[in-house]
């Protein structure tokens, strides 16, 4: 019963995602952007890379248990988990690594195993879901907050603007990492807590942007014409100004995503991130700190996690740049 519910959620996320993209593509702005994006091969490669990561994350979210007492296992667990080896082993080796008397392994591992004998490929794949959740859910918290405050401040000005500006200026003047540590101490460690903490620290940039853009659009004549027709402030904000802000929001969200994935890795490295049991590239990098000091060096753990992180962040940045060019061709020249 519980399995069924917890699996519904990722399916729902994917369905809603597809549905909104399809709807958006029916509008000329996005249809035109997609047409230009399709011509950009680099953007398509980046998009496919993101798609592969998303697929891995999705598969890792679909889980069920075989019998009542067992832990529930995801598709990734079922496909990629390997029986644990005694300790480290090098990629594709058949013996353990670094022991005076190497023991035989139960099987070969493409990227070797870590200190507890877990397969590195499996661990790296497990990190995907965490990274995507951190990026996605943090933005789900930060974006509405930023838009709400930014648009209200820009549209109504005066006291509202003063209040919002004061809030984000104060928030922005505290070093982010300090704020994160404080919040995680209060909230405790864990994936949801981390999303909330990152969400609270990362809305300021988008809020500023939304405020400035709203300020610009508020003075546009189409908004004045709407007011002359007697259209309410709420409707003007939602139906007239918000659609005009969407392009910059989408761009800033895409580029913000990679920043959040990196933040997670950094926080986990500082042992402030997700709990040790949860698969995460940050945790893998943290674990490999000591491994690098060993002789001969154990590099595969670090390399796998860093490469996974690097490729995802690069893909998001490339895609974000391409999206910006596609939506606003003026920036090309």
């Amino acid at each position: 019963m519980l399995d069924w519910l917890s699996n519904l959620f990722p399916v729902l996320v994917v369905v809603v995602g597809f549905w909104s993209v399809r709807r958006a593509l029916r509008q000329p702005l996005w249809a035109e952007a997609w047409r230009r994006l399709k011509a950009n091969r680099l953007a398509l490669i980046a998009l496919s890379v993101i798609g592969v990561y998303a697929l891995v994350g999705f598969c890792d979210s679909i889980a069920w248990r075989n019998d009542k007492n067992a832990n529930s296992l995801s598709l990734i667990d079922r496909a990629f988990s390997r029986p644990a080896e005694p300790t480290y082993s090098a990629p594709l080796a058949n013996k353990t690594f670094g022991e005076p008397t190497p023991r035989a392994l139960q099987g070969r591992h493409l990227l070797g195993t870590d200190g507890t004998g877990q397969d590195v490929v499996y661990l790296t794949l497990k990190g995907c879901r965490t990274a995507l959740i951190i990026g996605g859910f943090t933005l789900l918290i930060a974006t509405p907050l930023a838009l709400l405050l930014g648009m209200l401040a820009g549209y109504f000005g005066k006291r509202v603007d003063d209040a919002v500006q004061y809030t984000y200026t104060v928030l922005d003047s505290i070093p982010n990492i300090l704020l994160l540590i404080a919040m995680l101490l209060v909230l405790g460690r864990g994936l949801p807590q981390l999303c909330v903490a990152l969400g609270i620290t990362s809305w300021v940039g988008l809020c500023r942007l939304a405020r400035g853009e709203t300020l610009k659009h508020r003075e546009r004549e189409y908004v004045r014409a709407a007011r002359a027709l007697g259209i309410s402030h709420g409707r003007i904000l939602m139906h007239h100004i918000l659609p005009n802000l969407l392009p910059i929001i989408v761009i800033s969200v895409t580029l913000g995503f990679s920043g959040l994935v990196l933040s997670e890795a950094i926080l986990s490295y500082l042992q402030l991130g997700v709990a040790a049991g949860t698969g995460s590239w940050g945790n893998m990098i943290d674990a490999s700190r000591l491994e690098l000091a060993r002789d001969p060096v154990i590099w595969w753990n670090l390399a796998a996690a860093s490469a996974a992180l690097f490729i995802l962040v690069l893909a998001f940045n490339l895609f974000g740049d391409a999206l910006r060019d596609a939506i606003d061709p003026r920036l090309n020249s």
Binding site: A225, L229, G230
Partner: peptide
């Protein structure tokens, strides 16, 4: 009512003509 100078700024670029007119009719 009012008609503005710049016909590029006075129409919302993200709305079809139908949406604009229906909105005005609907509000009243």
């Amino acid at each position: 009512q009012i008609v503005f100078q710049d016909p590029y700024a006075s129409l919302n670029a993200r709305m079809t003509v139908r949406e604009m007119l229906h909105e005005a009719l609907g509000v009243h």
